[in-house]
Design a protein around this nucleic acid. Structure first.
Lengths: 234, 234
DNA sequence: CGCGCAGTTGATTAGGTTCAAGGGATGTGG
DNA sequence: CCACATCCCTTGAACCTAATCAACTGCGCG
């Protein structure tokens, strides 16, 4: 099937504007205009996409890859705030509010993303308020998610948090196999610890405990087999 | 000075639309229109403004009072997410995204707030995209704040968290006196604990420690005197 | 003035961190 | 294809801090 909207150089039939709910209210003609404003960028695994105090002033929409968004916490530890996958966007904080950027974005895999400059995007919103509503919706969702995370961190036990993370991972990075779900971890132990606010040792121990209790199997350093379980949770 | 925009019944010279950055881009005529869409509500101390699963489907802008936004955490504990003061708004989550509302809002003092219905507000945005940009800015700021809180919870020590909370309080609810700042606490110990994800006993102990170390003085149950300190932080 | 509940304080326990050492996986070079 | 080196991960033991359980205190309300 041919892609007639691919003014975005390099999008190669991926039609990023089409896949993203953000732009679902645009007419076809408007999509073509939109495409002309998009600049595609590619990063290698390990590349820094965003570093503190050097904001990009553009919205980025993740096309392909996994990106971690971190912030330097106290005592030189990094706190991971988000793990972004395909079709998620990032950078609103610099776009809409004048906030000194303390974020860092690192490509965890080879990554392709589409960027739209601040000026272009604001112009777009002024012309198409419906897009504003979409962005508001997305931001609200993100707020909601963050509120949930906050609730987890404050309220849930550490075991529960690890389990939720693994559940998230199994959805995003999992592959169904005969015994359950094989998770290809995007993070190493230390990064998982930084995500959950723990130390790498504790993560190890927790995983070992879950291994012993029969909920999962740790396979090498980057894979975890999560067993299916027909728990009838009351 | 007379208030010529007070179509909002009961706003009594407060001209809520004027005080709120959200509407700063409106012309005077548009403000008058705006006022006609606003419904003012009053609550007594302790009243429930919002209860789980009964969303209000409107934006509320806090005119006068203190409101706590909570969510039920595990084991029946409430997790306090926000403490809202004058001119802050709330309810976007139900406005822009279809999220089942799990939030609870309780008036901690006698409270007056202005509400705008979902339909009216969305119409307003379609007509005045500049407002959308403002809301986006506000949401971005809130996200930013929440990210900071998350970072605190995950990364900072408990002592640091309590200190930041007290600093926040001294800005919002403090009164400058000769020796420092007298904070009129909007929360009791248990609520402070629920805000920080601790137990009330720990909050007591921490305050006692800070008392002994000479950073503050606990006065009765609802007041704390925070001593001035000319710390030259490097 | 006295009662009740929020707040404090104490003793014990649980669980994570820290420091330290050992094991295994991944990937390179022979 | 195997051996080796390195890095990551795991495991162990001691420590530390907050939660828990329990008793007591005193503020603040009637």
């Amino acid at each position: 099937m041919e892609c007639k909207y691919c003014a975005c150089q390099g999008c190669e039939n991926k039609r990023c504007t089409h896949r993203i709910p953000l732009f679902s209210s645009l007419s076809e003609e408007e999509m073509i205009q939109m495409q002309s404003l998009i600049i595609q960028r590619k990063y290698k695994k390990g590349d820094y996409i965003l570093v503190p105090n050097e904001p990009m002033h553009c919205l980025f929409i993740l096309n392909e890859g996994v990106v971690k968004i971190t912030r330097e916490a106290s005592d030189n530890k990094e706190q991971i705030l988000y793990l972004l996958s395909n079709n998620e966007f990032f950078g609103e904080t610099n776009l809409f509010a004048n906030i000194p950027s303390t974020m860092m974005a690192v490509a965890l895999t080879d990554t392709t993303l589409c960027t739209i400059s601040k000026a272009h995007f604001q112009g777009l919103i002024m012309k198409h308020p419906a897009i504003a509503l979409k962005v508001l919706e997305e931001l609200s969702l993100r707020l909601h998610k963050l509120e949930q995370i906050l609730e987890n961190v404050g309220g849930k036990s550490i075991d529960e948090r690890l389990i939720s993370l693994l559940d998230d991972f199994s959805e995003k990075y999992g592959e169904t196999v005969s015994q359950g779900t094989m998770i290809h971890l995007p993070l190493n132990r230390e990064e998982i610890a930084n995500y959950l606010g723990l130390t790498r040792e504790t993560v190890s121990r927790k995983l070992a405990k879950l291994h012993k209790s029969g909920t999962l199997k740790v396979i090498g350093h980057r894979k975890i087999l999560l067993y299916d379980e027909e728990e009838s949770s009351p």
